[in-house]
Computed example of a mutant assay.
Amino acid sequence: MAYWVSTILTILGIYIAISIALYYLQDYMLFKPEKLPKDFQFHYENQETKEYNLETRDGAVINGLRFFPKGESKGVVLYLKGNSKSIKGWGKFAVDFTRHGYNVLMVDYRGFGKSTGKRSQKAIKRDLQLVYNKIKEQTTEDRIILYGRSLGSGFATKLASMNNPKKLILDAPYYSLTKVTARYAPFMPLSLLIKYPLPTYKWLKYVKCPIHIIHGTHDKLIPYKSSVKLAQINPDLTKLYTVIGGGHKNLNNFESYHEMLDEILNSESKTIDLETTSINVIHSSKKTKKRA
């Protein structure tokens, strides 16, 4: 056998082996869960909480926490977290919403925290719709805000596209998870291999509520430009908030982030009478001739 044929077959074999490994190991690469014992007790200083367990139709259990505001509630924020740890650690961010008068519901995806069940994109979407339906039994949709952080941004967008929440807030969202992984494996057939493509850009076009996107300019994991592209998909409903110098995991350390949340949570959208603005003013670069 010619040397070049042997070399090509060897390279092809390695390529196929890497593809197979990526397919079967992607769950371990994508998800970084923290598992908690069933008797684990959640505790947060100065936060009133209640724990929930929701059984799904395939027998899985989705564990969640509800955080209560002090005083009368303005509504519910369904907070969909990132790909690591559990709501044990993510619960500290609930204060950013309870301080504004909102209940916060956080849930752990399958295999995270106390939640059980075999994980898949379809199963997680189904679980979150079940959670959303349970919230609707307690309040009306015009009081529900969806907040998706990193991995959760795709699932939040999917939920918003199939329902009618008051607002959708995306924190460091990705255009699609396939696009994110392609940065690290540019020569692999990821469209065929990825079990969690999470095409946020496809779902975003069907969202009918106001969309608020928050992203840091120094995000090394999910580039800021992904939010710029997402903001152009449904521009009439979308507002992009830029945290100058913000990374992927530290937006909550920026005062500007909290100012943005305050604006999003407490301000209602206003219709502008464009006829009273300069939108139709035509600027001409032509020089006009002086009259004699």
Score class of each variant (00 low, 15 high):
residue 142 D to T: 02
residue 271 T to W: 09
residue 22 L to F: 11
residue 151 L to F: 14
residue 37 P to K: 12
residue 25 L to I: 14
residue 36 L to F: 04
residue 49 T to H: 01
residue 187 F to D: 08
residue 258 H to I: 06
residue 182 A to E: 13
residue 209 C to K: 00
residue 50 K to A: 12
residue 266 N to A: 12
residue 194 I to M: 14
residue 230 L to I: 01
residue 120 S to A: 12
residue 224 Y to K: 02
residue 253 N to F: 13
residue 196 Y to I: 07
residue 198 L to T: 01
residue 44 Y to S: 13
residue 64 G to K: 10
residue 263 E to Q: 12
residue 81 K to H: 06
residue 261 L to K: 08
residue 149 R to A: 03
residue 148 G to N: 01
residue 255 E to S: 15
residue 81 K to W: 02
residue 2 A to M: 12
residue 179 K to Y: 07
residue 79 Y to A: 01
residue 280 N to T: 04
residue 225 K to W: 04
residue 217 T to R: 07
residue 50 K to Q: 15
residue 119 R to L: 09
residue 56 T to S: 15
residue 155 F to T: 10
residue 9 L to C: 12
residue 104 V to N: 08
residue 164 N to A: 09
residue 139 T to V: 11
residue 136 K to V: 06
residue 133 N to V: 01
residue 132 Y to A: 05
residue 85 K to T: 10
residue 74 K to Y: 05
residue 238 T to L: 11
residue 102 Y to W: 08
residue 32 K to N: 04
residue 176 S to V: 09
residue 201 Y to G: 04
residue 222 I to C: 01
residue 92 K to I: 09
residue 35 K to I: 11
residue 213 I to M: 02
residue 275 E to R: 15
residue 97 F to W: 06
residue 118 K to Q: 10
residue 229 K to M: 08
residue 65 L to Y: 03
residue 173 P to S: 11
residue 171 D to V: 12
residue 94 A to T: 08
residue 64 G to W: 02
residue 201 Y to T: 02
residue 287 K to A: 11
residue 235 P to C: 12
residue 78 L to C: 00
residue 146 L to H: 01
residue 113 G to Q: 06
residue 256 S to N: 09
residue 142 D to W: 00
residue 146 L to M: 03
residue 89 G to Y: 02
residue 140 T to S: 13
residue 133 N to P: 00
residue 223 P to I: 02
residue 179 K to A: 14
residue 261 L to P: 05
residue 48 E to W: 03
residue 11 I to Y: 11
residue 235 P to V: 03
residue 234 N to G: 10
residue 78 L to I: 02
residue 274 L to H: 08
residue 261 L to D: 07
residue 117 G to Y: 06
residue 94 A to W: 04
residue 255 E to N: 14
residue 131 V to M: 01
residue 251 L to R: 08
residue 13 G to A: 14
residue 266 N to R: 09
residue 157 T to G: 04
residue 202 K to L: 12
residue 42 F to I: 14
residue 86 S to W: 00
residue 248 H to V: 11
residue 145 I to E: 00
residue 162 M to I: 03
residue 201 Y to D: 10
residue 90 W to K: 07
residue 34 E to D: 10
residue 166 K to E: 02
residue 221 L to H: 06
residue 285 S to N: 13
residue 94 A to N: 07
residue 75 G to R: 00
residue 146 L to F: 00
residue 171 D to I: 07
residue 262 D to T: 11
residue 147 Y to K: 00
residue 88 K to G: 03
residue 238 T to S: 15
residue 84 S to R: 03
residue 202 K to E: 13
residue 164 N to Y: 02
residue 53 N to M: 04
residue 170 L to H: 02
residue 134 K to E: 13
residue 175 Y to T: 05
residue 107 V to I: 15
residue 46 N to E: 12
residue 118 K to W: 03
residue 179 K to L: 04
residue 105 L to M: 15
residue 201 Y to V: 04
residue 218 H to G: 00
residue 124 I to E: 06
residue 179 K to H: 14
residue 163 N to C: 08
residue 244 I to M: 15
residue 204 L to H: 00
residue 167 K to G: 00
residue 63 N to S: 14
residue 22 L to K: 09
residue 65 L to V: 06
residue 204 L to N: 04
